[in-house]
């Protein structure tokens, strides 16, 4: 059973075909990855899946329902959340508040409740607070709770973005190059965190350049090149695939690592 299906997804930018007739399915559990050289069309694919960009052709099915053309905020409400290649933290909010914003879609207090603070709203806010703190703990940022998000070092910003995405209680989380800009240790920690999130029941789909991370954490890999899918399978299968090796020309050692 798959949680996400992409059927014949195509996106053209004028004469450029960024995604060409891409079809694959992501298993309902574990960690999957989309890999491919720069310019292979990975981020375009993510933008179409998460509703930020309309496909030229094809459709996206999430949890048995077609979500092509559905707005991003609605897709998030249905349980598909994404992060961004360039971290998009709320710089003027603290670490804690950033994660609380992630709880937004699962809570309901409005303007009137903000002013009058009825009992249910106070309870909801207390639950939001507890949940946010638990997620900050999960990603190891407990010491930074009151810190402004903008002043965190880059690696911690990445972790915070993941905690914030987790606060939406997603069934599927798309991570766009979560290891970009991380050092070796941080990448290793990230891998552990991703496995832990998947073990907790949230399916993870990542776009990644760091082959070591992908080969260690992903159960299922889709390979793109020049906007087309060129391979799909387990890490072992992908490493033996000649098309993939060719696409990564010179990257053979990296795959073996």
């Amino acid at each position: 059973m798959s949680i996400l299906r992409v059927d014949g997804l195509t996106r053209r930018f004028g004469g450029l075909v960024a995604n060409n007739d891409i079809t694959f399915a992501i298993p309902a559990h574990g960690v999957s990855a989309v890999i491919g050289p720069n310019g292979a069309g990975k981020t375009t694919l993510f933008n179409m899946i998460s509703g930020f960009m309309e496909p030229s052709e094809g459709r996206v099915t999430f949890d048995g329902k077609i979500i092509t053309g559905v707005r991003p905020e609605e897709i998030a409400a249905r349980g598909l959340v994404r992060t961004f290649q360039l971290t998009q933290l709320f710089q003027n909010l603290s670490v804690l508040e950033n994660v609380k914003v992630g709880c937004h879609v699962r809570t309901r207090a409005g303007v009137f409740a903000a002013l009058t603070r009825p009992a249910w709203a106070r309870r909801e806010e207390a639950e939001t607070d507890a949940k946010a703190r638990a997620l900050i703990d999960l990603v190891g940022l407990s010491d930074q709770t009151e810190q402004l998000a903008g002043v965190l070092p880059y690696g911690q910003q990445r972790l915070l973005e993941i905690a914030r995405a987790m606060a939406t209680e997603p069934r599927l989380m798309l991570l766009d190059e979560p290891a970009a800009g991380l050092n070796h240790d941080e990448t290793a920690q990230l891998g552990t965190l991703i496995r832990r999130i998947a073990a907790g029941g949230t399916t993870v789909l990542l776009i990644e350049h760091d082959m070591r991370l992908v080969m260690k954490t992903a159960d299922h890999i889709v390979v793109l090149n020049f906007g087309r899918k060129i391979a799909e399978g387990t890490p072992a299968q992908i490493q033996e695939n000649e098309d993939v090796v060719e696409a990564y020309l010179g990257g053979v050692e990296m795959l073996d690592a």
Partner: peptide, 14 residues
């Protein structure tokens, strides 16, 4: 305050 920081991120969070 979130949407003042990043509208895209705010939308992605629902």
């Amino acid at each position: 305050v979130a949407l003042s920081g990043s509208e895209d991120a705010a939308r992605a969070l629902g």
